[in-house]
Design a protein around this nucleic acid. Structure first.
Length: 416
DNA sequence: TGGGGTTAT
DNA sequence: ATAACCC
């Protein structure tokens, strides 16, 4: 069962770290990254003073009047640094899966096996753990599962060290026998530390979660439905009759989340490779005329075309997403329409993007009119454009393998 | 609540 | 096309 060794790496307050690298003079000051009216993340100087992630700007400045805010609505610097991290990890080991911009899973099973054999050949029997052991559990060097995980902790330390010396970023790592456990354990010692989980402490780790929604994979909706059934804790979910759960959530979800509640997760580390979509969005208080919509969409389109051009692949699908104001329900009621990109336009993605803007803007406005009757009043609070279904150029080596090593250094273009 | 992403149905 | 999940 527990044959694999998985590392989860989680950068510390990633956007704030990137901003501190961009503005070294801010490094020892309380710093927050702002998007619209929110402080989406902040450095540890700010956290000491009570600022929390996703706090409103108003509350944050009340907590910490000296707080310095930088605007982080343009994700370009974070996205670029994020891929540098994934690329670096990929040098150690091909199995790297991204989760958001600031987390990566690495399946280090094969690297561990190699080191284990080297160790056995050199006749050395002493191995030393790097970082913390969850629950302070005693290590048994006779237990090869323990030894593999200890070697995993040493590899994770090397990964964090490489990320720090080569990119200047700190982060946490968790090492365990599957992705779920590696992710859960990585947060136990917080900034810039790492923790390994030995199998005997698995149940204590999952039971340390105070609510089922803390289990990665059980989100808001599922947690609400489980509450209806009286299931609130990990214990409740473990003990709940499987047949009833399957009828309520469907066999697939029921079986998966019940296994998660025991700390079981056989999902593989799936190499992410290059992105499968490129999107750009903007939110606002109000957008209510077609002219305004067209202007906003054009802005989104310009920066997206620049990104696609740098990527080198050609998208086949374009999508427009919007959110309409609704006083009732604070909810996230988004709708979208998508269509194939007209085939005669596709070849132009390899070149200057300026002559693509006008025809694609026409396509997007048609999609807009499929959702909104422009003769009636409307009130939008978000617009988003997405390109997906990306295809490699014929016979050019820009595919998933060449991706990471490619062109990290085109001139920085017309971002917004 | 922001500005992204992915997979399953 | 939407709905769920992740950050």
């Amino acid at each position: 069962a527990g044959r694999r060794v998985i590392a989860h790496l989680d950068l510390d307050c990633f956007y704030a770290q990137v901003e501190m690298i961009r503005h070294p003079e801010l490094t020892d000051k309380p710093l927050g990254v702002q998007q619209k009216n929110l402080v989406v993340t902040c450095n540890y100087e700010a956290r000491k003073r009570g600022v929390k992630k996703l706090m409103s700007v108003k509350d944050a400045k009340e907590m910490c009047p000296q707080l310095i805010l930088v605007n982080g609505e343009d994700l370009t610097p974070y996205r670029e640094m994020s891929y540098k991290v994934t690329e670096l990890l990929g040098e150690f080991c091909p199995l790297v899966e991204r989760l958001g911009f600031d987390e990566n899973f690495v399946d280090i099973t094969e690297v561990v096996e190699k080191r284990l054999k080297e160790l056995q050949q050199s006749g050395c029997s002493g191995v030393c753990v790097s970082g913390h052991v969850y629950n302070n559990q005693a290590i048994d060097l006779q237990d090869t599962t323990h030894v593999r995980l200890i070697i995993g902790s040493q590899i994770a330390e090397e990964l964090r060290e490489a990320v720090c010396t080569r990119l200047g970023l700190t982060g946490c790592a968790g090492i365990a026998s599957n992705k779920l456990l590696a992710k859960l354990v990585s947060g136990t010692f917080k900034p810039n530390q790492q923790t390994v989980l030995l199998p005997e402490s698995c149940q204590e780790l999952v039971h340390s979660l105070d609510h089922i929604q803390k289990v990665p994979g059980i989100g808001y909706k599922t947690a609400k439905r489980l509450e209806t059934l009286g299931v609130r804790s990990v214990c409740d979910l473990q003990a709940f009759p499987a047949a009833v759960l399957e009828k309520e959530l469907g066999v697939s979800i029921a079986q998966r989340i019940q296994k998660l509640s025991y700390g079981e997760d056989d999902s593989p580390v799936t190499p992410s490779g290059p992105p499968q979509s490129f999107s750009d969005e903007d939110s606002f208080k109000k957008c209510s005329s077609e002219v305004e919509v067209k202007e906003k969409i054009e802005q989104l389109l310009r920066s997206l075309l620049d990104r696609i051009y740098r990527d080198g692949r050609q998208p086949r699908t374009i999508r427009l997403t919007l959110r309409q104001f609704s006083a009732t329900e604070k909810g996230f009621h988004r709708e979208s329409r998508q269509c194939p990109i007209p085939p005669h336009l596709i070849h132009r993605f390899g070149k200057e993007s300026s002559n693509l803007i006008s025809p694609l803007l026409d396509v997007l406005m048609k999609l807009f009119r499929k959702m909104i009757d422009v003769d009636l009043p409307f009130h939008l609070t978000l617009l988003s454009v997405c390109f997906s279904n990306l295809k490699d150029l014929p016979s050019s080596k820009k595919g998933s393998i060449g991706f990471y090593l490619k062109q990290m250094s085109l001139p920085s273009g017309s971002g917004k």
